[in-house]
Design a protein around this nucleic acid. Structure first.
Lengths: 145, 145
DNA sequence: CTTGACTCTGGACCTAAGTCCAGAGTTTAC
DNA sequence: GTAAACTCTGGACTTAGGTCCAGAGTCAAG
């Protein structure tokens, strides 16, 4: 095997822990550059593509979408550093805080439902049921035609 | 207009704040019973369908999927109350707690990235960069073929 | 130079919860 | 009885981030 000119698709995929289609998908999405090709048309990646894929994964874990990652990588390629990453990270932080708050609201409602021992969405028999619309009586079966 | 036999699709949709297609979608998914039909084939809903739709919305807001809501409604229709809702609510609570914990992890990483004044995913110039793989140097442009 | 392993393309498919559409039929008010 | 408004069907489309496939072509070892 001769890796001096670069890695083949399968090698990059294996080392980065992604699959081959994902590599091509990222290429289409502009996350990784179009690699050189062998005479027969096979892709030949520079070794740091593996690292780039790790960066992409890390950014995804921070909650950035692939579009956002693509833009962050694009601004990161400019000669002068920008505040783009800081801006986006701050915006993402706000987003995350909103999600956390939303989940806390849900959590509280679930806790109440459990504490009250609700036993039905529609015909709850618990005392002081916290569920809204607990009085609905659904018919036993579908309305026959 | 004669509503004594029930509501028409558009009336239910408007009162429940969903659209007509959603109504048919819920019918296909088994969330609402198949309604009676007019001689011409138009659906005629009982008035409490509006309430049922509100219950479905409430359950969705608690984080239940439509499949879960459908099953909860199904067990709710049985003669004897079951512990199904309690079980599902407890499981959902665990799920919500895991999501909250995950978001806190993300939040912490974002906060570190902001505090360190990171300026690039791939070429960060900040001191003691908390980003993993910050040493990656991406080429200026795509590898030319 | 054969053979097996690998890669190529582009399009279909997946989940979840809907939304939109065309073309046909129904209902209702006047 | 006509016209406007409504509803019917079922299939395609949406978002996000991939995954899978068939059929053809390429690469590398022996």
């Amino acid at each position: 095997m001769n890796n001096e000119g670069g890695l083949r698709t399968g090698e990059v995929a294996e080392q980065a822990g992604v699959n081959i289609q994902t590599l091509r998908y990222y290429e289409r999405r502009g996350l990784i550059a179009e690699p050189a090709r062998s005479p027969g048309g096979h892709r030949t990646y520079p070794a740091d593509t593996v690292t780039l894929l790790a960066v992409i994964k890390a950014a995804q874990k921070l909650g950035f979408t692939l579009d956002e990652v693509a833009e962050l990588l694009a601004t990161g390629r400019r000669r002068h550093p920008t505040r783009d990453l800081q801006h986006r990270a701050a915006a993402k932080l706000t987003e995350v805080d909103q999600k956390i708050a939303h989940l806390h609201t849900i959590r509280q409602a679930l806790t109440q439902l459990i504490a009250a021992r609700c036993d039905s969405l529609t015909n709850c028999t618990c005392a002081d049921c916290p569920m809204p619309f607990a009085g609905l009586a659904q018919p036993e079966g579908p309305t026959p035609q």
